[in-house]
Design a protein around this nucleic acid. Structure first.
Length: 423
DNA sequence: TCTGGGGTCCTAGGACCC
DNA sequence: TCTGGGGTCCTAGGACCC
């Protein structure tokens, strides 16, 4: 038998909800939903909540009544918990396959090369699912196929199957799966493209897969062309196994409108520090910083919900030092700050990233020679003792601008004082 | 009153150069 | 009289994902 390449897509079911359920079993079989930052939108739903017709991403105030009516249990998002649970799942997956691509907080592709007997993969999928259930307590779905796009399709089918595992092997299975799949359910095709394709008389994944990728590429661009290849079992999406981020963003809406410079600087400094920590963790340096501001329109009749302002600053030499970045942030804010303006959100984006090792030493050094060690020590202590044990003075201590989080669960796995007690 | 946050890739168009 | 053409780089914005 010819050896072939296969992909498995492992996806945690209703991930945030499932994480909450691990530490609070009373939530089982109850309708549970998780809110975004600032308790703004619905970002995760249990099956019971989905059945109530509450859509993903809807502003919470629009469904609040419905939730009260059906006794839906509501949580603010607890990323310390979800991030830690995700890390544990990924450690297990790493053990199970040499090639793991972490795609998001709750899903990962496993790549298997030179597979002689694909049925073996099915056995392995069962083992993976059982191990994650036993060691971590999270339910996962697994889709198997010859390309990433088809593995996504298989995963969708798996989610609705009794075993939670589906292998999209063989022509007949592929034909049946694609004929039953509406275009917008294909990975990479959103509502806009679906509409345009519908106008051309195309409705299912099968319809699309029949087209000439060269023709589609000309009309819709290379992305859609690639999808056609993938749907036909030809892998063309590259494997980004150890991708370093190409930009790092940290931003948040304020809990209440901000007008004081001090608050604006505190918030921006916190986000800069957060972004720089991520930057150092992936071993990169940034060559540019962008700061974003969302502003309440001064004209009350404005059709827009907010106005935007942004400023880019190119660094004379790349850095990962929080203090350097924060100095620049302060400089930028001083330039744009207007006392009569109402600010709703601020964000810091680190751009033009490269590996810290390839950085050239410049005689025009911005930072003292021991700057790197200082940051290293800061990261070590914050890692061990909890985030923000050490912080930069301009991050402030009052943090009046912080968002709402009225329904947060304890950080069971990342704070000693939140450790679950079993009585 | 209340509408998240963090990413990727691609494309079109302007500026600039020879 | 009569207005090139091709290449590169950069940026903003679009579309998509979770």
């Amino acid at each position: 038998m010819k050896k072939k390449k296969y992909y498995a897509l492992v996806d945690c079911n209703n991930f945030y909800v499932s994480c909450e359920r691990v530490f609070n079993p009373k939530l089982k079989d109850k309708p549970v939903l998780i809110l975004s930052n600032n308790d703004g939108c619905v970002v995760a739903r249990s099956d019971e909540v989905k059945k109530l017709g509450i859509p993903m991403g809807v502003p919470f105030f629009q469904v609040k009544q419905l939730c009260l009516q059906h006794k839906v249990i509501v949580f603010s998002s607890n990323f310390a918990l979800y991030g830690d649970m995700s890390w544990r799942v990924m450690q297990i997956l790493k053990e199970m396959s040499e090639r793991l691509e972490i795609y998001s907080i709750d899903e990962a592709f496993l790549e298997f090369n030179d597979v002689a007997d694909p049925e073996q993969l099915l056995e392995m999928a069962h083992a993976i699912k059982a191990t994650i259930a036993q060691w971590i307590g999270l339910p996962v779905s697994i889709g198997l196929a010859a390309t990433k796009t088809l593995a996504k399709v298989a995963n969708r089918i798996a989610k609705h199957s009794s075993t939670g595992i589906f292998a999209l092997f063989g022509e007949e299975v592929r034909l049946c799966a694609l004929k039953n799949l509406p275009l917008s359910q294909i990975w990479g095709i959103g509502a806009r493209w679906e509409k345009q394709l519908n106008q051309k008389g195309l409705y299912t994944a099968w319809d699309l897969a029949q087209l000439d990728p060269y023709y589609i590429k000309k009309q819709f661009g290379v992305v859609l062309g690639r999808i056609i290849y993938e749907l036909n079992g030809v892998p063309v999406l590259s494997s980004n196994l150890v991708a370093a981020r190409k930009s790092i963003l940290s931003s948040r809406s304020f809990g209440q409108p901000v007008t004081e410079f001090r608050d604006l600087l505190e918030a921006a400094s916190c986000y800069a520090q957060q972004a720089c920590t991520k930057l150092r963790r992936q071993g990169s340096v940034a060559r540019a910083v962008q700061i974003f501001l969302k502003i309440k329109p001064s004209d009350p009749k404005s059709r827009h919900y907010y106005d935007k302002q942004s400023l880019i600053y190119s660094l004379p030499e790349p850095t990962a030092d929080s203090r350097t970045i924060i100095k620049i942030i302060r400089h930028c804010l001083e330039k744009v700050y207007q006392p009569d303006t109402i600010y709703k959100k601020v964000g810091v984006l680190l751009l033009d990233l490269s590996s810290a090792q390839h950085g050239q030493a410049s005689w025009l050094a911005l930072e003292p020679p021991k700057a790197k060690q200082v940051m290293h020590v800061m990261d070590e202590i914050n890692q061990r003792m909890g985030a923000n044990t050490l912080f930069i003075a301009s991050q402030g201590t009052c943090q009046r601008w912080k968002g709402r989080k009225n329904h947060c669960s304890p950080s069971y796995t990342s704070r000693w004082d939140a450790l679950l007690e079993v009585g």
